[in-house]
Amino acid sequence: MEWDALWLSVRLGGLTVLILLPLAIVVGRLLAVTKVAGKSLIEASLALPIVLPPTVIGLYLLVAFGAGSWVGALWQELFGHTLVFTFEGLLIASVIVNIPFAVQPIQRAFEAISPELREAAACCGLSRWRSLWRIELPLAWPGIMTGMVLTFAHTLGEFGVVLMVGGNISGETRTISIAIYDRVQAFDNAAAGKMAGVLLLISLVTIALSFLFAQRVGRRDD
């Protein structure tokens, strides 16, 4: 069992969720509530990672992160090392790949809130911040939870993009999925099976917890 690979995956998933949570709430609400010009185009762009093969995204990110691109060059200038084959590069890739998994459920959740509730909040004199905090976020909470769980679970299982951008450096970019692949390549099916089992268990517990939580929120509404 490669605990450091598991820990790296969990850390990657957790940080991806932390970074995406505020971003997805802002973008999801914006798309749900306001009339943005070119909304369909924005939505299509955000959904791209769902349909593109992971190797294609991985390739683009690899090129974008490389020292030859302005992103890679800027990173190198600021931090003294390249983005490719580092945990930071992996994290940025993971955030980009998971945008649709986080944004879409949150956008749907905000869309499901009746516009009259926002108007009622305004007529009650609630500030925009109070209206978001007290009315909209609690109502959108199940969708936000779903987005976060999907993001976390998807990060744990991500393989193609991780391999392309991060490679397979132990303790730096070697995630549990890659470790499993690695063990299978080495005909060590027992170790691969053990890790797969742990991954299965973690995924199951995460999703069960999120369902339980969503139910509690739902029960409060009954």
């Binding site: 009746s114 009259e116 509730l117 108007e119 009622a120 007529c123 009650c124 500030s127 409060r220 509404d221």
Partner: peptide
Amino acid sequence: ARRRRVGLVFQSYALFPHLTTLENVLEALR
């Protein structure tokens, strides 16, 4: 709308579904 002092009763009432009766009224008393 926040600065006009209006009391609006919507056709669908638009009560905040996750807040109790008391909490719904308290929100208008901020």
